[in-house]
Design a protein around this nucleic acid. Structure first.
Lengths: 141, 141
DNA sequence: CCGCATCCTAGGCGATACTG
DNA sequence: CAGTATCGCCTAGGATGCGG
């Protein structure tokens, strides 16, 4: 039984956790979940280039995605979430037809920069990861 | 119509995307999805402290989580995914009862470091984000 | 102790059709 | 053009029970 170092580790971690976060409405978990979803990082990437209207943004995301296009409904949902957290700003001008523009806030640009760092790290390790997967899949037969 | 700068932006982005990634089995999207899930970052955090057995790890994760404990099934699944990508190493000793230990690989430790940077950035902005949410929720009434 | 199989539920996301 | 409503699928993840 190596229970002593084990409990020590638990105590250390528990202290670290309760220091920040752990309680409900934990932005860290929620934002990480957002960045891990199907579209948000791609949306940030496009909005980084300037101001976009809903339809144009939707078309462009479809072209950038290897899979299929984002549905209108989901784009609205994602933009709402991003806007709610303060990463995206929404501007309305005119109402028939409506003209709505989206752009990054300074906070959103900063978030995108941070996320890119992680994504780039993964991309440079991509072959490494692919190799590990092949080995793993071949191993158990 | 500002279609010129628009298409320019598209072209630039498309080039950037096809440079790396975009094609299927894109590790970046998959690993980001992993880090955005319910448990993986927490698992990395605990494994950072050393070598852990399945049951102990499970108990500790339960204590660190504000919500409920991770199920045995899901812990196995998450560890398998992490192992498959080369972030976690699994060692078996004895078979009745089995003794299985998990620890981070160098790649896994590195990944965790990168992820922590992003998580820490979010945590330092947490109040900022919470405030944005309150404003947004109050706005439309 | 660990892992697997089974079953079940909640939520993410796509498709379509409709309003202002 | 932007947004909403409704539907239906599929996956993540929890609960339980068995076997090695």
């Amino acid at each position: 039984m190596d229970s002593a170092p084990l409990h020590q580790a638990i105590a250390r971690l528990a202290a670290e956790m309760t220091a920040h976060g752990k309680h409900r409405d934990d932005p860290a978990r929620e934002v990480m979940g957002l960045l891990g979803d199907r579209w948000s990082t791609l949306i940030l990437l496009v909005l980084e280039t300037g101001e976009w209207r809903h339809a144009d943004l939707r078309r462009t995301l479809g072209q950038l995605s290897a899979e299929q296009a984002i549905s209108q409904r989901v784009l609205t949902l994602k933009l709402r979430t991003l806007e709610r957290d303060g990463f995206v700003a929404r501007t309305i001008t005119g109402s028939v037809p409506p003209k709505v523009s989206y752009r990054l806030t300074p906070l959103g640009r900063d978030l995108h920069g941070q996320a890119r760092a992680l994504i780039d790290w993964i991309n440079t390790r991509a072959d490494n990861i692919r190799l590990a997967r092949e080995r793993f899949d071949a191993a158990d037969s």
